[in-house]
């Protein structure tokens, strides 16, 4: 088992590298960082442009640039931005912001998603099932940026109704906030609710749909009938035998759910003014910055693969059939 997981990890590392290279190469090919410089009015002297080109290693072949970048990256130096800031200095802060959002969104999403899905399956064709199904569909059909905008709208109404700033929708803390630990916590939470809700809603809808169908599959299974035949009530059989088995396929979904989350997270950060990795990516592309793009890509690839690997681990934990292989 451990060997199986180790093997997967090696494979994933290779994929990570290739993916990062791909993004690096694509960015290096399509970006034109000195274009903006040239477009300045009056145009800067040729020497300035050449200096910038040399600084950004624009005239070297892309594979070589990648190897140089990677060599530094392994040692913790992800290079400098187009405007000559250190990426490594900013990186930890941005990762912290993104991870907080992602993890909270995932935990809330999976937790509520499973509960909603199971409840839907057990109460199939009742009103609550139809309602849950309908809302899942609506949320899955709403792009995250729209959902974020709508939530902002709702929060504004709420704040107006309450006559106080209950929910805040820009930034992750109030700039220059002063106060004790408790006040700081409240301030954080006020900032946290909307972005988390924005990404969690999609996750809940996504997981609940699959949990519902996994549970329905289990509802008709022979082993559930066996469990009832030996004297368990339907309810007990459902929870002890049904739910436990229906959780197994959710482990594999986890990896994909996380992928979804990353895209959604980018929008959320952007809309709510959280300076995380997603926000950085958009900024990097707007600035034609290869190093930022490659760094964020590496981060995303690592996240996707870690979630894939975790997915394998969960799967092995949940299903004895895999465990013993």
């Amino acid at each position: 088992m451990a060997r199986f997981l180790a093997r997967r990890l090696v494979n994933y590392l290779a994929l990570c590298l290739v993916a990062t290279f791909l993004a690096f190469a694509l960015a290096a090919l399509t970006f034109d960082p000195v274009g903006k410089l040239q477009a300045r009015n009056p145009p800067p002297p040729q020497a300035t442009i050449d200096a910038k080109r040399a600084e950004l290693r624009l005239d070297e072949p892309i594979p070589q640039r990648f190897v140089l970048w990677l060599g530094d990256a392994v040692q913790g130096d992800f290079g400098r931005t187009v405007v000559n800031q250190s990426i490594s200095e900013e990186l930890p802060r941005r990762i912290g912001v993104s991870l907080r959002l992602f993890l909270l969104g995932t935990v809330v999403g999976i937790g509520l998603g499973v509960i909603v899905g199971v409840a839907s399956a057990i109460r199939q064709y009742r009103f609550s099932d139809y309602a849950a199904t309908f809302f899942s569909f609506v949320i899955l059909s709403t792009p995250v940026f729209l959902l974020g905008l709508l939530l902002k709208y709702v929060a504004l109404e709420l704040n107006t109704a309450a006559g106080a700033q209950l929910l805040v929708f820009t930034g992750e803390t109030t700039p220059g906030f002063q106060g004790g630990f408790f006040e700081a916590l409240v301030d954080r939470v006020q900032h946290l609710v909307l972005p988390t809700l924005t990404i969690a809603l999609g996750q809940i809808a996504y997981y609940s749909r699959y949990q519902r169908s996994a549970m329905l599959d289990v509802l008709g299974s022979d082993f559930l009938r066996t469990a009832q035949a030996k004297g368990l009530t339907r309810r007990k059989a459902l929870f002890k035998h049904g739910l436990r088995t229906a959780l197994v396929p959710m482990a594999t979904l986890f990896a994909f759910g996380f992928g979804l989350l990353i895209t959604g997270g980018t929008f959320t950060e952007r809309i709510f003014g959280w300076y995380g990795m997603g926000d950085w990516l958009v900024y990097g592309i707007e600035q034609d910055d290869t190093n930022i793009t490659a760094t964020v890509t590496l981060f995303v690839a690592v996240l996707v693969l870690v979630s894939g690997w975790l997915s394998d681990v969960f799967y092995a934990l949940l299903d004895p059939r895999v465990r013993l292989r």
Partner: peptide
């Protein structure tokens, strides 16, 4: 019924491959 099932009436099903919960 659950008090009767398994205590007074028991059942053996057709397909043994799927009759047992795979995770226990």
């Amino acid at each position: 019924l659950s008090r009767i099932r398994g205590r007074r009436v028991a059942m053996v099903f057709q397909d043994p491959l799927s009759a047992l919960t795979p995770v226990y």
